[in-house]
Design a protein around this nucleic acid. Structure first.
Lengths: 343, 343
DNA sequence: CTGTTAGCGCTTTCAT
DNA sequence: ATGAAAGCGCTAACAG
């Protein structure tokens, strides 16, 4: 009825004729407390509708039990899957989450870091923006020894763990597959090479070409932000190439689909005239006709692992932890790249 | 260098020969503090690298400056758009966000509510799960007078504002459009009618049929959870109808696309044999061939409005606030339903 | 316009 | 196995 009064450990203590310290210990299952006493504490706590007050606890312990997440954007299938994974782990561990999006801008990322810092998050999970030049905006974080785990779009830093897939290998696999399908001129559409993911995929692509004895020339790499507009904005560049490419490897499915739509408008057949492989295994890859071959990206798992790693570091700072955790990717072959029927 | 010591208002007070209260007031721009004093306080605060301690403040004020969001799922385009909108508003207002997903289960939703309650969120933004039967799990929230705003999937409650689109009208619009295109038998694929969104769209559909003088019979409504499997799971039911439908209105794009794929496999032409309209304006609607007609759902705006409303209630509890806020939707006509070429 | 004072609810030595 | 006491950093009467 009286909804304003907080039930505190003192209320419990008074009722049971105990001290607040004993109640506090009992509530956290402290080994030194008698079993029966614990039981009684727990029971009256329940009866009174006691709620642990995080703020008093945080204030006292100088820990917030809050983790911060900074991502480029929330509204992509990949990212929301990652967040879902993080959310699950973090909630189970009794931590809270603060999420902030950098909107792909280094500047907004900086202000996100400040927000996190001011909220005194115990740890940070970060995937950097498209154009983040360096890690200076994280200096406050490092100076305070706040643990930070990068995922997907990472930076090398001695104190940070990174959770990634093997983007080099993935780029290599995608390109090799196109080569096996008989493609003679495969181009690559990728993002800012300052980002590990795009750089590694690009290297994988080049290496695959070279191991197949094909030459790479700089006009075979098209740099683009990789979004819904990619198709319209680069289609002419593709169509004007001489000789025309017969294979495309793009660094995400969104751009792959956008390109496919333009190719179809231009009257090219996929995969007969031009084969294509995307990246991420976004649901749209199964909607576009023909279905898009792609690299499966274990988003939820990445979120879970990144969160688990951060929690481990938090639990035991001395742990000599890994520097990089590499998750398994998988090439998914669908019609958009299938020129040779398999045996 | 010494990274462990917190700078407090007492440090600032000591340096400036002031009291902690004056510093506290100065920092919050209290009107009663001399301008020059404020300036000095702000300056030394900056020099010392002072950070406001939210926990001490929360503990004292019994406010958390944290809002909770409970949604069925994070990984749909619609929902991540809504969240993006909420995040922007809430961050700008200096609040934090705790996000939890019910995974479409009433039970998990209940435990989400508990989490929120225990984190003492100042307010809640909720879109209910697919099978939530009632509002009992929110009783704790209401009893504590924690303001709650529903969005999209709402419940009627005297103390809650709901932010929605006019789902009845949207269903009516979609169906009327199909009727105008000459469809003689339009079926509806929708979700649990205990959810306002599905019930309202269904009513809109029926009303449109009736105003056009067409009869509705119960077999024309197919109940389904509306996901990627919808197509496979209901295609036989559709194909076996007698007479076969020549129009479908589904309550989301995911299911619309799944159905279209099955229809194409069955050799039916869209829209010639069967026209279709979806719901949400998900990006996949522009990927599927033919492009899917749909209802545009202003997700980001819905997030922004819901968050703004909640913040307003928080700022001024006495405000006699709205009961329902209805955002504008829009019918987007694409090829999947275009049987008559417009003049 | 500024200072004094008294907690918010919890944890944690240090005792016993 | 339990208790006493101090304090985390801030705010809000109240007083002047």
């Amino acid at each position: 009825m009286d909804s304003t009064k907080e039930v505190t450990i003192y209320d419990i203590a008074r009722i049971l004729n105990l001290s607040a310290s004993t109640v506090s210990r009992g509530l956290k299952d402290h080994p030194a407390i008698h079993k029966e006493t614990k039981r009684r504490i727990l029971q009256t706590a329940r009866e009174l509708g006691y709620q642990h007050n995080t703020f008093a606890s945080n204030l006292r312990q100088k820990k917030t039990h809050t983790l911060g997440v900074i991502v480029p954007r929330l509204n992509s299938y990949f990212m929301s899957t990652v967040i879902a994974g993080i959310e699950r782990i973090v909630n189970e561990a009794g931590y809270n989450l603060i999420i902030s999006q950098s909107l792909e801008s280094a500047e907004k990322e900086k202000s996100s870091v400040e927000t996190m810092y001011n909220s005194r998050t115990d740890g940070l999970l970060v995937s950097v923006a498209y154009d983040t030049p360096d890690l200076h905006h994280l200096d406050v974080i490092f100076k305070k020894n706040i643990p930070l785990v990068f995922f997907d779009r990472t930076f090398d830093h001695p104190d940070c763990v990174s959770v990634v897939i093997d983007n080099f290998k993935a780029g290599f696999d995608a390109t090799s597959h196109l080569l096996q399908q008989g493609c003679k001129k495969i181009i690559h559409v990728g993002g800012n090479l300052a980002r590990n993911v795009y750089a590694d995929r690009f290297r994988g692509y080049k290496t695959a070409l070279e191991s197949a004895g094909q030459k790479f020339s700089s006009d075979m790499f098209i740099l683009h932000a990789l979004n819904e507009n990619t198709g319209k904005e680069i289609i002419h560049q593709i169509l004007n190439m001489d000789p025309k490419p017969d294979g495309i490897f793009t660094s995400n499915d969104t751009s792959a689909v956008a390109i496919m739509q333009e190719l179809k408008i231009a009257g090219l057949r996929i995969p007969e005239d031009i084969a294509i492989v995307g990246f991420n295994n976004d649901p749209i890859s199964k909607v576009i006709d023909p279905n898009l071959s792609t690299i499966n990206y274990p988003g939820e798992e990445m979120g879970e692992i990144a969160a688990t790693t951060l929690l481990n570091i938090l639990r035991d700072e001395r742990t000599k932890h890994f520097n990089t955790i590499i998750l398994k990717h998988e090439l998914i072959i669908r019609k958009s790249s299938l020129r040779l029927s398999a045996t």
